[in-house]
């Protein structure tokens, strides 16, 4: 501003010194001005006619490309997210499935364990009962055998002792008793 004011001041002083044309110093001569304007117009026309549209086209293409890339990126992101969500869901499913299988296996194992134990217990009980019964039968048999044997031995012994202890009078008494019973018949 100061410079412009100085320039203006200087120009004014020059005009006053030069007499007629202070502003002439600043303004080009008219022919130059006209040539300049024409040249400018030509350049402007070229620029406006080809450069700008080309530039605009390029800009537009870039814009489009960027927008496309953006949307692709968006799409890829969405796809990625949906894939992620799928994976997460699958993972959760797999986890749940895994848990379910483990739970099933555990339940099956538990059931099998219980069945095996129950069967083993039943078998053991049966074997025990059978053994007990056999032992009982064997005991009874041995007892009755022993009883018979003892009975036989006792009777044999008694018979022997009686036979040896019978004297003539005892024999006669037995015969007499037999006779008496026979004569009563």
């Amino acid at each position: 501003m100061d410079l412009f004011a100085q320039i203006l001041t200087f120009a004014a002083e020059e005009a006053e010194e030069g007499g007629g044309g202070g502003l002439d110093l600043l303004l080009p001569p008219l022919n130059e001005l006209i040539a300049g304007i024409i040249a400018f117009a030509i350049v402007f026309f070229f620029v406006w006619r080809w450069a700008v549209p080309a530039f605009n086209r390029m800009l537009e293409q870039r814009q489009k490309a960027i927008a496309g890339q953006l949307s692709e990126a968006e799409k890829a992101k969405q796809e990625a997210e949906s894939l992620l969500a799928d994976y997460r869901a699958q993972l959760a499913d797999a986890k749940a499935e895994g848990n379910r299988i483990i739970e099933d296996a555990r339940a099956t194992a538990e059931q099998m364990r219980a069945e095996v134990i129950a069967k083993a217990e039943a078998d053991a009980e049966q074997i025990l009962a059978k053994a007990r019964q056999e032992a009982e039968t064997e005991k009874d048999r041995a007892l009755s055998e022993a009883r018979k044997e003892v009975g036989n031995i006792s009777v044999d012994l008694a018979s022997q002792i009686v036979g040896e202890s019978l004297d003539a009078s005892a024999h006669q008494a037995l015969v007499n008793r037999y006779l008496a019973e026979l004569e009563k018949m």
């Binding site: 009975g151 036989n152 009777v155 008694a158 009686v162 036979g163 005892a170 037995l174």
Partner: peptide, 28 residues
Amino acid sequence: VGGIVARVGDTVIDGSVAGRFQSLRNAV
């Protein structure tokens, strides 16, 4: 052993000590 066993045909009249012991043995 003692006493008498009489047999007439198929009829046996046993009054013997052996017979008594035999019935005792059977009972035991």
